[in-house]
Amino acid sequence: MTAFGSALLVTGSEQLLASRAVDGRRRTAETEQPGADINRINALELGTSMLSEVVGGSLFSSHIIAIIDDVGATPPDVVDQLIATAKDPGDDLCLILVHEGGNKGKGLIDKLKKAKIETVAVAAPKAWELPKFCQQEARRLKVGLDQEAANALVSAVGTDLRALVSALSQLADDAGGETIDAKLVQRYFAGRADVTSFAVADAVLAGNTSLALERLRWALNSGAAPVLVTSAMAGAFRGMGKYLDAQGNRMNDYDLARQIGLPPWKLKDYSRTSRNWQQAGISASIKLIALADADVKGAATNAEYALEKMVLGVLSHRRH
């Protein structure tokens, strides 16, 4: 199947994967017809005559690669013409329609799918799938990434795909063709302010007062915004609450991680530190974290004091 004479619908909210799907089809079309014109427009700007210009040939090239973004915003009076064009693009047109997901333009999307337009659905991997995504991305970069390193990378960078891909690209350059291991990941991200915020939350979950306060001071001295600390604490304690709720369920680690919304390796951390907590303590802690979050966003004059007060208050609710 050639790129020309075809239409592709890319739908989903994950922008990185959507961009890759669009770029993949565009590159295929450019390989087939190096001189093809590329016309890209937001669907909101389409009118009947504008659609004809976008998908039609020019004086300089008979072949057109037409990319229409946010296709759900297509004006109603253009919908039928767009569907007709997608059904029969003609041999000289490569049509790519981009939909950001959701219910916007649902009627148009349903009609395109009913017409059996080729569709690529993109969705962000779930939290427990992110290490696997990182390993796949590493293979794309032609570098090795073991499971421990993949886990460490997600812990350090978080769940944003663009941030993970960027980090992997930098790590691949630094690795010099060698397999990326957990030590390289930890060394590379040791000084990141947002990572030190998660380290504070880990120490509090572990019930280690001196380490938690030490890491808090290190985080603030490293430039971590106070709101990053409260955010990391909130995420950690919401996760622990979910873990305690699901602890009695009879399911394997993968299913338990999926239910809670955590990567499977994180279950080991929660399993190890859960002995420090009961649901009452978690509920009280989340209230303290919410108060501290309001304080660091302007309710208090001294954010550092508010964070220390939060850490000590939360730790007072751990099981003894």
Results as ranks from 00 to 15, higher is better:
161 L>N: 03
88 D>A: 15
232 A>L: 05
54 V>A: 06
4 F>R: 01
94 C>P: 04
284 A>R: 14
150 A>K: 08
224 A>D: 02
140 R>D: 13
9 L>C: 08
89 P>D: 12
150 A>N: 06
93 L>R: 07
264 P>W: 12
266 K>D: 02
58 S>P: 01
79 V>N: 06
177 G>S: 06
117 I>T: 13
78 V>K: 04
224 A>S: 14
154 V>L: 02
198 F>R: 00
217 R>S: 12
4 F>N: 03
212 A>V: 04
193 A>I: 00
12 G>P: 09
9 L>N: 06
118 E>H: 06
182 A>D: 09
95 L>R: 06
150 A>D: 05
72 G>E: 01
94 C>W: 01
175 A>F: 08
238 R>I: 10
268 K>A: 15
61 S>C: 07
44 L>Q: 15
255 D>F: 08
320 H>F: 07
144 G>P: 05
71 V>C: 11
42 N>K: 12
204 V>R: 01
157 V>Y: 00
228 L>W: 10
160 D>E: 14
289 I>Q: 01
158 G>W: 00
172 A>I: 01
20 R>T: 04
9 L>E: 11
196 T>H: 10
110 D>S: 14
107 G>A: 15
136 Q>E: 14
240 M>L: 13
39 N>M: 12
218 W>M: 09
27 R>F: 10
38 I>F: 10
308 E>F: 03
212 A>F: 03
217 R>I: 01
43 A>L: 03
294 A>E: 14
215 R>Q: 13
161 L>S: 01
44 L>P: 00
166 S>R: 11
214 E>T: 12
99 H>Q: 07
157 V>T: 00
25 R>E: 11
